[in-house]
């Protein structure tokens, strides 16, 4: 008899629906009213997404106050990188005691953003910036470096651009 009543009265389904109803009413009665914001979703492309301070984005080379590249070619980042995406060519520059990276190539397509390179760097000359919108249309756009056309290791990657070849 009890079991029959339980089959007849869908209390379990009502319990589930009450959860849905509660959330629906919360959103329904607060939507378009600024007083009580109730938004779990962020309006990402319109509103820029916030990342945490430790976020691991794209690798960036740093410069010191004089505009000199801080990197001294100790090759620690090249050695520690689990996917071998960094290639450094050691060179000399006039008026600089420390070695100077003639080439600092970074193949972003294979980078796994583990931050081992930054950890290994004893000269604080590289960081992972907070950029995460790194999609591009061409494969060449992923090979970054200190030289070459539009290749850029010091600033943010251009976003919404079709290709390096475009400009």
């Amino acid at each position: 008899m009890n079991k029959f009543l339980r089959t007849l009265i869908p209390a379990d389904i009502a319990k589930g629906l009450s959860v849905t109803g509660k959330h629906f009413s919360q959103v329904f009665f607060t939507a378009n009213r600024r007083k009580v914001p109730f938004h779990i979703v962020s309006e990402y492309p319109e509103v820029p997404a916030k990342v945490q301070p430790r976020f691991r984005g794209r690798l960036t080379l740093l410069k010191d106050e004089q505009g000199e590249i801080k990197c001294v070619c100790c090759l620690a980042c090249e050695k520690i990188c689990p996917t071998q995406v960094i290639t450094i060519e050691k060179g000399k520059k006039e008026g600089r005691k420390m070695p100077f990276p003639v080439r600092y190539d970074f193949e972003m397509e294979r980078c796994i953003f583990c931050e081992f390179c930054v950890e290994s760097c004893g000269f604080d000359s590289i960081i992972l910036n907070h950029q995460f919108e790194l999609a591009a249309y061409n494969r060449e756009d992923f090979s970054l470096g200190t030289e070459g056309l539009g290749q850029n290791m010091f600033e943010l990657s251009p976003t919404g651009k079709f290709s390096v070849a475009d400009d």
Partner: peptide, 23 residues
């Protein structure tokens, strides 16, 4: 993300302890 900077592929710990203390 707050602790180690990544959400899914965390690489959270290091051999011998942690890279950084709690943020």
């Amino acid at each position: 993300e707050a602790f180690c900077g990544s959400r899914l592929t965390t690489t959270a710990f290091r051999i011998g302890g942690l890279r950084e203390d709690l943020p």
